[in-house]
Design a protein around this nucleic acid. Sequence first.
DNA 1: ACCTGTCTGATTGTCGACAGTAGGATCGCG
DNA 2: CGCGATCCTACTGTCGACAATCAGACAGGT
Lengths: 220, 220
Amino acid sequence: MSEVGTFEAVERVSTTEQVMRALRRAIVSGELPQGAQLREVQLAQQLGTGRSAVREAVRQLVQEGLVHHEVHRGAFVRMFTPDDIVDVYRAREAVELAAVELVLAAESVDLAPLRAALDRLREAAACGSGTWRDMAEADIAFHEALVLRAGSPRLARMAATLAAESRMHLLAYPPYSPQRNVEDHERILLALEQGSAEAVELLREHLRYSARLATEGRQA
Amino acid sequence: MSEVGTFEAVERVSTTEQVMRALRRAIVSGELPQGAQLREVQLAQQLGTGRSAVREAVRQLVQEGLVHHEVHRGAFVRMFTPDDIVDVYRAREAVELAAVELVLAAESVDLAPLRAALDRLREAAACGSGTWRDMAEADIAFHEALVLRAGSPRLARMAATLAAESRMHLLAYPPYSPQRNVEDHERILLALEQGSAEAVELLREHLRYSARLATEGRQA
DNA sequence: ACCTGTCTGATTGTCGACAGTAGGATCGCG
DNA sequence: CGCGATCCTACTGTCGACAATCAGACAGGT
């Protein structure tokens, strides 16, 4: 039991896991457009692996809601309707508000990851347009870090799933008001640092505003 | 385009789906005890199918959190620590409170499924002990129906996942106060029917009370 | 022109085979 | 007797093969 040095467990990733990450990245980045069919043999060849790994990875993505599967027809990248976007934000509201309440209830929580994400967000916003991709990433990282701080594995898992869906439509439709977005996150973090219950309402407003932007700003 | 008659789509279940349901049932019912290893070949033989179907089903259960998987070691039925139970109730609070708020915000929601579940719960409670299994089922059905009425696919999916975990430990540890349990649900449903915002607090209290019962009553 | 049955190419569902790994049993040595 | 190396068995990871199924094209009858 004599511990010498601190080692992180080596990350062992199976082929399936790697395939899953690759597919998820391709989907949320739009490389695989919405509605595209995921052909198992083709993907297996592209990725240099067998069909089994691809199949399992696809099944996983189905469970995450990124992919839609029909028996004997195949798997397709999910089509996001406006209703879906509304629903994603509804679910995020449920999860993230609960997370904020947990963070506020805990006596001391390390908010450094949040500040780091906020810095990245601020930087991306300052660099002007064209970097909205980085902005979206930082935005999502902020929210994901927030839920992580709550220390609830289940909330974190839900948040991760929802983050993938958010990423998908954020990268597709970037109707951002950069300064407003930065300010929102700043205010939320500030309230959290002060332990103010105001953070709950700020986050709720931020999410509802984002949802409105995402659903209205489609034709813009 | 002339629609004649109304038909529900035929339910096509693949082998994988069937295997998944069988395994989930066996797990939440305790037939497969916590910590048990899920051997692929053995399960495949028992279920009269091949390994692929079993593998995919197991992967799915891993994603649902009922099963734990280690590379090159195998899949095991998840062990539930007290922390896990607390976390399940935390996550349920997040999901179900959000659902209640959505139900209250909607103008008219059909609450018949809730009343049906409540009736079953009342009946099971009246039959005395020994039927706590039916009680647990009715209890879970009530909460699942509640979230379904909110009309949010994502909240519903999360609730289903959490319901499986709840079922698992409810069937293992039935520390029930039947009358209190029935009363709680009655009050919640009543408040919902009246459109009273009180329902939120009632549900929160109910869940916290259940969580306390589940974590304290272990040694009883 | 429309509907219907058939054929066909492609894709998924399912399966067993082969290789690699983990953990325990066995054996040898100090 | 204790400890380490080695072997061995069982299991999983991965793969390609075969069967079942689907969507679309095509032909024939009404």
